[in-house]
Design a protein around this nucleic acid. Sequence first.
DNA 1: ACTCTGATTGTTTCC
DNA 2: GGAAACAATCAGAGT
Length: 168
Amino acid sequence: MTKKPSKTKDFLSASTENPLKIAEKEKLLKPKSTEKKMTMRTRQSTRSAEITKPMSPKELKPKPKPKKKEDSKMPKKPPTAFFYFLEDFRKEYQKQNPDVKSMRDVGKACGEKWKIMSYEEKVQYYDIATEKRAAFDDAMTEYKKRKQENDEDQGSGDNYEKLMYFKG
DNA sequence: ACTCTGATTGTTTCC
DNA sequence: GGAAACAATCAGAGT
């Protein structure tokens, strides 16, 4: 199985050609924006742990590689279309399978369903992801801008330190 | 008490 | 162009 990034582009371009879909997507967005926060902390911790910890003896899983400096202010990658679908799917799945609490099973089931889903069903999530990505890109641009400013400020600070070092 | 793990696909980024 | 990291979720296991 080879990856098909172009496939995604097809979805995206198609989505832009369907403004009606976007309207539907907005409807989906509202209920989605109910509330989802805090939980990100776990993710951050997990990620940091992947770096600090050597990792479990799992041969199937790739080893975590040292990450670059991670700024807490840095915007995180937005969820993909699949992840948005996963949100809804998880709720329904847990309703139908209240006994299954592990996300592993949900992820498996979600992946299988995602594969058999039709284009019309997927495009909604792709549209959401596209907008989120645009927002993320915008946030990233601003973040870089701010970072530059901070760097400049810190630069003067470095100069001060250098000066002190020079004097000392 | 706090932190990490797992399983999924899509997108992005780096080389 | 390809490979790998990273995005959310959350109960359970581990430290």
